[in-house]
């Protein structure tokens, strides 16, 4: 095999590895309605709007809604009452979403292109 073919083969093998790795490292965004159908989930990303925001002892309690259904969220940290959608990353158990991160539709609008 000449070096050109070898390079091409290496590249193709690599693309295959990349696609497989990618497949195992993605998680879809889901809505609160879809979340309610699950019993238990780890590291999921739920998209919705914030309602009923309360803060207590540095913890934040709020509901995340998609217009049809809402789920309870507990977050260690403060959250502002955004009007736009947020993404909550966390674990879902016993009907409560324990948030690890609350991400805004974010600043990246402004960087680059």
């Amino acid at each position: 095999m000449n070096s050109k073919k070898l390079s091409l083969a290496a590249l193709l093998i690599f693309i295959a590895i990349a696609i497989i790795t990618l497949y195992y490292n993605i998680s879809p965004y889901i809505s609160p309605s879809q979340l309610l159908k699950l019993d238990y989930a780890n590291d999921i990303q739920v998209v919705g709007k914030i309602t009923d925001l309360k803060a207590q002892n540095g913890m934040t309690f709020f509901k995340l809604t998609d217009g049809n259904a809402a789920v309870e969220v507990i977050y260690k940290g403060s959250v502002q009452h955004y009007d736009s959608e947020v993404v909550v990353v966390g674990d879902w158990k016993d009907g409560v979403l324990y948030a690890k991160e609350v991400l805004r539709k974010c600043h990246t609008e402004y960087t680059g292109g």
Partner: peptide
Amino acid sequence: VLFSSAFIVVFLGTVANLMVSVERSYYLIT
């Protein structure tokens, strides 16, 4: 070959990220 691979990895991740969320581990592994 190496630059093309780097390019493809980032490109695939970026395109996938438009639809689903891509974990950091994908980039670390590839």
